[in-house]
Amino acid sequence: MDYEFLWRPVFQALPQLLKASLVTIEVSILSMAIGLVIALFLFFARDSNVWFARFFANIWIEIARNTPALFQLFFFKFGLGAIGIIIDSYITVVMALAFNTAGYMAETFRGGFKAIPNSQLNSARSLGMTFVQAQCYVVIPQVLRAVWHPMTNQFIWVMLLTSLGMLVGLRELSGETQFLYSKTFRAFEFFAVTALIYYCIAKLMLLLFRLIAWRLFRGQ
């Protein structure tokens, strides 16, 4: 092996990499938040009496779960681009990941809601709460606890998926790494450091979610 590892270019670029990881975190939080809201709507749509809502939600969930996230991203970027809808890379990545998350989380919510007996909703309604109030104050807090663990996993998953942004020209952590690599041709060094940063972000996120869970669910 007559390859000389050169780490200096990587260390010089470290501020750029860290800045780009902020984009990664931003994109993941944004996609997760939007995805969660849509997932709730999809969950209720799936249970609704309107056949069209059911149909739409089912199609969304099945496509999101049965095609690769990369395909979904390409579809939003190049597929829509081909029929004249051209969207900025940042928004495309958020859209694709939110689409994906919504499908997976709708399925997770189904399990979570199943764990709450229907009588709770009925009692809340009979106490004079509206449907939305009953959901927000009685059912959803309990569901949140039940789905917290899968939700954490999904969040880490979304964070890792933001790396696909490099394939559509988003300068998040991977995209920035690729850009810097193309200037220096130090692929291994750059991607090794990037891998390390991803690992650290994943662990930090996990820790953060544990802390939030501890704060939210203590005494329960």
Binding site: I156, L160, L161, S163, L164, M166, L167, S174, A187, F191, T194, A195, Y198, Y199, A202, K203
Partner: peptide
């Protein structure tokens, strides 16, 4: 904890 795409590259 590391994206698959990074592992591949």
């Amino acid at each position: 904890s590391v994206p698959l795409i990074i592992q591949l590259i």
